[in-house]
Design a protein around this nucleic acid. Structure first.
Lengths: 144, 144
DNA sequence: GTTCCTGCAAAAGCTTTGCAGAAGA
DNA sequence: TCTTCTGCAAAGCTTTTGCAGGAAC
């Protein structure tokens, strides 16, 4: 998932966004860390590398990315906002024990949602919770 | 969806929760208003009837209900927390134009999510966004 | 040279918490 | 009487905003 800086710059320029150092770093982080980070997690990770980075820049950049449809804002559970680079539709499974979030493919089509005849569906968010296989085996418990 | 007070009291007593006036009102509100209200919406609606009601009581009661699995905490979109009485699995469709939230039945089973073999699924949240039929006809736009 | 972006600090929301008095068992 | 709940105020978080200096165009 490693990308060249040029590729990231194109990502931004295509959307008429200035490729500032901070934005490139944030976007790069999202591309390399597909674990649905919160704004705070992004800030903490980049802060050591960019000591002057401010949290408002992280929030501002993320909002800009979301508006540009470059990044998707997730509300998986617990009302903590998470972010993910836009890709194809997939579901999120959050393990209640270890807190990890897993992606999974979904095959939902119109026949599964007959109530939505006549609706124009733009975005599908599917979030499951439960216990993941590792935790079912009692192997690891981290706290959420 | 109107229920008797006795029925609401049983609801609470079965879970060893004291049926205070405030809790009965909040629970009654959730049973009669199946539009996934926020804590603030519940507070505003009941405030005229119970002038002394405090917002912390609303939050506390809702948290108690959620822990008792009487109410489900929804994170549909935009990270605003909403609440709904627990019923069978159903999806939520949020119209981007009028802001209304529609329920719809879903028929997802294991064969639609092969990636989740070995996972113990406790809860399924399915949230779609888009445009509802009314707004597609250009009939009404309320702002979200 | 202009425009846009960053970073600081302050503000704005939403939600939780501590505690004294009130209500329910 | 004892326990739990309410309501107020304060605190804690997350996120947004105003603005001066700096970076990108």
């Amino acid at each position: 998932m490693k990308r060249s800086i040029e590729e990231l710059i194109s990502y931004l320029k295509e959307r008429e966004l200035r490729p500032s150092y901070q934005r490139l770093k944030i976007l790069g982080y999202l591309l390399e860390n597909r674990n649905h980070p919160t704004a705070d997690e992004i800030y903490e990770s980049l802060h050591s590398e960019i000591p002057t980075l401010s949290k408002s820049t992280v929030y501002n950049s993320l909002n800009v990315f979301v508006q540009a449809r470059l990044v998707k804002q997730l509300t998986i559970e617990d009302s903590d906002t998470r972010y993910d680079i836009v890709t194809q539709d997939h579901g999120h499974f959050k393990c209640e024990l270890c807190g990890r979030i897993y992606n999974f493919k979904i095959n939902i089509d119109g026949s599964d949602t007959p109530d939505l005849k006549g609706f124009n569906i733009k975005d599908r968010n599917v979030n499951f919770t439960g216990t993941c296989p590792s935790c079912l085996k009692g192997k690891e418990i981290r706290g959420r």
